[in-house]
Design a protein around this nucleic acid. Sequence first.
DNA 1: ACACATCGACTACGTCTGTAAACATTAAGC
DNA 2: GCTTAATGTTTACAGACGTAGTCGATGTGT
Lengths: 129, 129
Amino acid sequence: MAQKKLGPGDRISEAEHAVMEALWEENPLAAAEVCERVCTANDWSIATVKTLLSRLVAKGALGTEPDGRKFLYRPLVERDEYVGGESRRLVDRLFGGRAAPLFAHLAENEALTDDDLEEIEALLREMRK
Amino acid sequence: MAQKKLGPGDRISEAEHAVMEALWEENPLAAAEVCERVCTANDWSIATVKTLLSRLVAKGALGTEPDGRKFLYRPLVERDEYVGGESRRLVDRLFGGRAAPLFAHLAENEALTDDDLEEIEALLREMRK
DNA sequence: ACACATCGACTACGTCTGTAAACATTAAGC
DNA sequence: GCTTAATGTTTACAGACGTAGTCGATGTGT
């Protein structure tokens, strides 16, 4: 088999996600370059990053292209896709699929800044067309 | 030590969460009663439920009171507390702590029903006092 | 040519999770 | 009293995850 498309079983773990973020921000990158942007923040060794990269490739979340003796990695899944999936999973699991209760929750716990409120209002206005 | 308060390291896993949901909806319940409400839906055996209950007790998420030869389990963490924590974690991880982008995302993918929109508008109105 | 630095591949290993069986105790029915 | 059914406790085990070391190949500087 050549390319295993990311099955729904192939979830991206939390540590892997940090690697994905780096690559979503800039790509393609070599392993060492990825390490430069995530190793210190997470207190990881280069070896750890290599493992995470391999697992992400195995899961079909990353693709590689050879560049001399090294590999360049680039995301195969869009950040939007991932973020959307995770968001929906949470809303499904905790709020029965309804987004309003999530919103209410965030609002209650003042997890919403004034900027957020304004932005959301704007979105609503635009949505109402 | 008698009561270990749920440390932040003691996360509730997905399977465990299903058990918690049952107990949040009705409590206290015995293991067999919990199984009645979650075993068929998840295709679990009673043994699995017992394990999950034990682990939740160990994590400090559930408390027990003896009832004859059996135990009754009841939540020690509020559903709101859990839900709030998980929501914030997601927002932090995926949206840099800002809720507006999450909202935008849900909106884009029409994960928002008309009811949701109305409800959110109402919330906004009320919040603006 | 040769030592050295790099890089990906393979291996390792402890913890957590999902899933469950085996075991011990004990209340209850006969 | 003794068998049986129910219940919590212990043990099990495979797969995922976090974290990293070792190994073999290969390019690099001198």
